[in-house]
Structure formats: C-alpha cells, structure tokens
Design a protein around this nucleic acid. Structure first.
Lengths: 191, 191
DNA sequence: GTCTATATGGCGATAGAC
DNA sequence: GTCTATCGCCATATAGAC
C-alpha cells in the first residue's frame, strides 16, 4: 500500500504539536509504524516533507466558507455566520490552528505569500467587502484583520486565560465566544 | 567576569527566534563567544536555562503599565493609553513578543499559571475594571481578552497581512494600529 | 514500495586542567 | 569561572536487499 498520505496526515498532527525542529523523522516513523527509509522514499528530505504537509493540511480548508458568501443574507447575518463558522472550525481542528500559528510565527516570507494567495485570498476579499459595508468609515483592511483577530486570538489565548481572573468554563464554548465577538463588533461596547 | 546575565540575554533572543528545540547549546555558546561548558557551569541543563531565560525576559516588564492606571483620566482615555502603550511596547520588543507567542503555543499548564499570576495578573485586573466601566452589559473577562486580542493579534498577523489585499505600509505603524483599535472599541463599527 | 543496516555529524552533558 | 577534550546518543540521510 502507498504510505504517502498516511505519512502526511501523521506529520501534520505531530508538526503542529512539536514544531519542525521538535519532531524527528525517527519519532514520526515510529508513530506511523513504518521505517525511516520509507519516509525518505516518498520525500527527499525533512524540509520538503514539512512543506508538503503544510500544503496538504491547507488544501481542503478553503471550501468551508464558500457556501456562506453566496447566501442572500444581510451583512450583519453574514458576519455572525462567518464568526460562528470560523470559531467552530478552529475549535474542532486544533492541529490545523496550531499549524497556522507556527507558520505565522516562523514568518517565512515565501511561505506567507503562498498561504495568503492560495488559502486565504478569497475568504479575505469577501471579508473586506463585509467590512466596507459594516464599517464604512473605517480602514477595511484593518477592520477585516480585527474580525479575524477577535475570533482567532480568543482561542489562542485559552491556555493563558484559564489562569486569569474572571475565567469560566463556558468561555471555552464556541457559541459563547461567537456571541461575544459578534455583539462587540456589531453593537460596540455599550450594546 | 560573570557570564550568567549575558547568557540569559542572548538566550532570550535566540529562543524567541528559533524555539526551544531549534536552538542548540553549541549555537548559543558560539553566538556569545564562550564555551558550552561555561553555560553548564551556570545552568544545570538546557530546560532550566530556558525557563530561567523566560522568567528573566518577563521580570521587568510589569512596571511599564503601572503608572498608567494611577492617572486621573477617564476610562476612555485609559483604554486609549493602554492600547497605545501596549502596541508600542510589542512593536519595540519583538523578541519578547515572540517569546510570549511560543510560550502560549507550548501551553505548558504550570508555566501558564506562573505567567498569569506573576506577569499579567495586575494588568489584567485593571483591564477588567476598565472593561466593566466601558462595556457594562458585557462579560468583562471576554471583553478584556478582546482588547488584548485586537492589539496583540494585529501585530502577530503582520507577516501574513503583508500579502493580503488592502495592506499598506502605514498599517505597520503603532499609531495607526492604535487609532484603529481604539476607535473600533470605543465607537463600534459605524463610528 | 518497504525493509534492515549503516554512514556521518551534531546533540546534550561531563571530566578535569587552569 | 572558564576552558579543551571527550562520551554516548540521537539526528538526518543513504545503500542495497527483497
């Protein structure tokens, strides 16, 4: 049987958890239950495996949102849906989220460009249109990033937040986060 | 001369850049211009060096905000000042920011607890008071986190944002980010 | 396409001289 | 307190049998 896809699948999981330098080829092979040489049959070196794994992880993720933008709903409703879908997705696919975090932290310009132009381009352009409609007086780029920030960073901060004052278990629920972020964005602080 | 502090200083820089697994003791020694054995004279092992470096990096950071909370200004002004100070600080001390990101990504529960209770405790409690005053109807914990998110994540996304539609060089300026985030929070999307 | 065996080098850590 | 020299191990990567 061809082991290329199983290798990529396990690699995504373990690279997300340990980072590039933190995962050895031996560990990866052991986890899959194959030999190191088999990995090297499918990938020329560790770096290539990593890059292919990242692309593989991102390959099917674009579709999740496509249906959303076509709905004949109001801008407010679309924002609310976008926040909910993104939150649920990031909560459900933690490995993917950790991989994004690591990639952005690494900040390799070429890989950033690739990511921006292949995976996020379309979603971000829809988000820009939405920002222009919802916050006409504001810089749309900064507003769109702010929307993403509120969703993504709420989740990224969880390990730390758990130890900060006022935290409650329900703050980890996707629907609670969604409601808070949506309300803050649509109605402002006083709403 | 005692090399403990120079070791810690360089370690902060390189751990922030490469991560724990990505930096070897040999590389670190070479960068400082000393031998590996000298590092091991001051620190029992790599893990201890890392943890001490992280604590050292955070040790003097708490003071930056203390003066702010004592000022006799309005809640709106305090929020604006907090956002500005935080943005400028994170832009200026990128190594520190990257170290925070790595620590949160690692998510070691014990280290998270330590970080929350030593470095962020006081600032976060002031931020909670501010959130309660500015957004009385909302969950103060979530609001406070949202404020942090808007500042911190705007900067973390920079490597990716540069390749997304609508980005302009001025979006990297602390004062532009500050103004956007402050406006969004205080006046909502329509403001 | 997968394996066992191995080459080569860098790794964390230590011994012992100065 | 700092060094040179070295141990034993694990890393990436390859050779060659099946």
């Amino acid at each position: 049987m061809n082991l290329k896809e199983p290798i990529l699948t396990k690699a995504i999981l373990l690279f997300a958890e340990k980072g590039f330098a933190g995962l050895s080829m031996r560990q990866l092979a052991k986890e899959i239950g194959i030999s190191v040489a088999t990995i090297y049959h499918h990938f020329p070196d560790k770096q290539s495996l990593y890059q292919e794994a990242v692309l593989f992880a991102f390959s099917d993720k674009e579709q999740i949102f496509t249906e959303l933008w076509d709905r004949p709903s109001s801008a407010e409703q679309k924002l609310s849906d976008f926040i909910r879908i993104t939150t649920e997705f990031l909560v459900q696919d933690r490995d993917f989220h950790r991989l994004i975090q690591r990639e952005i932290l690494d900040a390799n310009p070429e890989r950033m460009r690739l990511l921006a132009q292949t995976v996020f381009k379309k979603q971000f352009e829809f988000l820009l249109l939405l920002s222009a409609e919802l916050a006409p007086g504001r810089d749309t780029h900064l507003t769109a990033i702010s929307i993403v920030s509120l969703v993504k960073h709420q989740l990224e901060m969880l390990p730390l937040r758990r130890h900060l004052f006022g935290w409650k278990p329900e703050h980890e629920a996707p629907e609670v986060i969604t409601e808070h972020v949506t309300g803050l964005l649509l109605m402002g602080p006083k709403g």
